[in-house]
Design a protein around this nucleic acid. Sequence first.
DNA 1: GTAGACCTTAGAGTTAAGTGTAAGTCAAAC
DNA 2: GTTTGACTTACACTTAACTCTAAGGTCTAC
Lengths: 126, 126
Amino acid sequence: MGYSIKTIAQKSGLSQYTLRYYEREGVLPEVSRDENGNRCFHDEDLELISLICCLKDTGMPIADIKQFISLSKEGHSSLPEQRRLLQEHKVHIDEKIKFFQTFAEKVEHKIAYFASLEEQAKAENN
Amino acid sequence: MGYSIKTIAQKSGLSQYTLRYYEREGVLPEVSRDENGNRCFHDEDLELISLICCLKDTGMPIADIKQFISLSKEGHSSLPEQRRLLQEHKVHIDEKIKFFQTFAEKVEHKIAYFASLEEQAKAENN
DNA sequence: GTAGACCTTAGAGTTAAGTGTAAGTCAAAC
DNA sequence: GTTTGACTTACACTTAACTCTAAGGTCTAC
């Protein structure tokens, strides 16, 4: 039977607007329709949406996601290219993790510094 | 003497446009001027810009950075509030790191899956 | 004394990624 | 049989974060 757009919005955490927007933009491949022309999502769609969210949330611009998805439509011949794009993105994610770790430390130091200033101010008031 | 906006743009990696925009928006506190009205940055400014970039690049919206910076102007009394904001953001960063690590794994699996499909296709062609 | 490199402001334009609205179709419930 | 609710499209609007342009001031080098 398939899922309605409402159900998929709930399951994916994306809004109905966003889902339609993604399909319009080619971020999501064309979704099949029921006899009334209503979108009819299936489990594969949900799986793909989950991958799309993962790419998006790790900073891939939707234009790039679109490119990746459009390769899927070309079948097996584009597997190496798809894999290459993912590998490139994986490098990106790893860099970001390192970057975030460095900045987590920096913020940590700043917090400690502020705490020490507060201690100092307290001591001066006594 | 202080640094010109051009120098600071080079040192910080932000564009001159962005630096002016940040000052206009209150993301950056008002920068002192020379006798011609030209901005005259100092090392403290550079340090603050580095913190701002760190907050921004770890996902803090500039509206929030602005709030944080405006507290700095209030002196010692706002230290606890500033510290609270940083701690909140630190939690955010840590969550993001975990999230990214999970998705790095997911992408890794996907890559391995694609590689296995490629192997399979190659085998079928022989 | 003027050309060029630097700076200034005000305000308009851009881009990405949605978000919302209007007008309409369709099926089920009352 | 009409109201309600979920869906459709086309298109306009929004928001964040810049980015650019126009018009002009000032200093330095020739």
